[in-house]
């Protein structure tokens, strides 16, 4: 077991940031914490990286207790906080060298681990970190977090505010790191990134809604989900919400994801209803639920 969290709770004043959280991450696993801002992801990361002390519960990282063995943990984990936390007035090279030095190693010693990532930013090695683009900064931060060959890597919202191209590249990098045996705990507010993890924990309001592999999570979606489309989106949403048998109505891109209260749902009946309400170009098709659908379903309970 690489990370083990048992009944962790933590409050700030009267706000409960984490409420009785438990989960385990296996060695070499890519584990995702999926949830919106304020779900408690950062607090959990800080507890696991020994920066905060939980009020209740216990946790171990790489076999070390977060409280008693915090020094050992600090030697064996890499941590990339949510904000870009490198020295903006130092160059790419200087930042990397600095972090290598304070971890008692050199860039050369662990170069094979960061090589894939570093070659992409190497052309800019003399540039100050503050002058890099979002994607570059993120790559540099990852290099710095990896420079001492950590056993466990903590990445707190690494892809927030980064464009899709950089995001995709970033996840490809994580997959490669995982193959080198590094356990990765990553958090993200983007549901579409969840599918890229081995297992995920859906988290909201300081509580874990569900933990499983992404395919299993969507398999547990309790209802039949329909994609409903029509010409006037606003009217469609309003009309569906006014339908007496509706269970949930969520806009989903160019369609609306609709579930019905009844087990014997008849799409023709709904189509008829929508037509009588003056909607045109109506389409109703059954569709596969996504992790986001599951999340919303769990969150409304």
């Amino acid at each position: 077991m690489s990370i083990s969290v048992q009944h962790i709770s933590k409050s700030y004043k009267d706000v409960k940031a984490l409420n009785n959280i438990s989960f385990e991450v296996n060695e070499g696993e890519l584990f995702g914490l999926i949830g919106p801002d304020g779900a408690g992801k950062t607090t959990l990361f800080r507890i696991l990286t020994t920066l905060l002390i939980a009020e209740k519960g216990s946790a171990t990282v790489a076999g070390f207790d977060v409280l008693d063995d915090y020094k050992s943990i600090r030697n064996h984990v890499g941590y990339m906080p949510g904000r870009f936390s490198l020295y903006q007035d130092l160059t790419v090279e200087e930042n990397l060298n600095f972090f290598a030095t304070i971890f008692g190693t050199t860039v050369e010693e662990n170069y094979d681990l960061i090589k894939d990532i570093y070659v992409q930013i190497e052309p800019f090695k003399k540039r100050r970190a503050g002058k890099l683009s979002g994607g570059m900064k993120q790559k540099l931060a990852l290099c710095c977090a990896l420079i001492h060959k950590p056993k466990v890597l903590f990445l707190d919202e690494p892809t927030t505010g980064v464009d899709p191209v950089s995001r995709k590249e970033f996840w490809e990098m994580l997959k490669r790191l995982q193959q080198k045996g590094i356990t990765i705990l990553v958090s993200t507010p983007y549901m579409d990134e969840a599918a890229l993890c081995d297992r995920i924990a859906l988290i909201q309001g300081g509580e874990i809604l569900q933990i499983d592999t992404p395919p299993e999570i969507v398999k547990h979606y309790p209802k039949k989900l329909y994609n409903v489309g029509a010409d006037n989106m606003y009217k469609l949403i309003e009309t569906l919400k006014g339908y007496e048998h509706q269970y949930s109505v969520y806009p989903f891109g160019e369609f609306v994801h609709y579930t019905d209260n009844r087990s014997d749902f008849n799409s023709k009946e709904l189509k008829l209803y929508l037509e009588t309400m003056n909607l045109s170009n109506i389409s109703i098709e059954i569709t596969k639920p996504t992790i986001e659908d599951t999340f919303m379903e769990l969150a409304r309970l």
Partner: peptide, 13 residues
Amino acid sequence: ELGTMEILLVSPL
């Protein structure tokens, strides 16, 4: 303020 203290704390330094 920059958050670098976080990284320094989570280091063996």
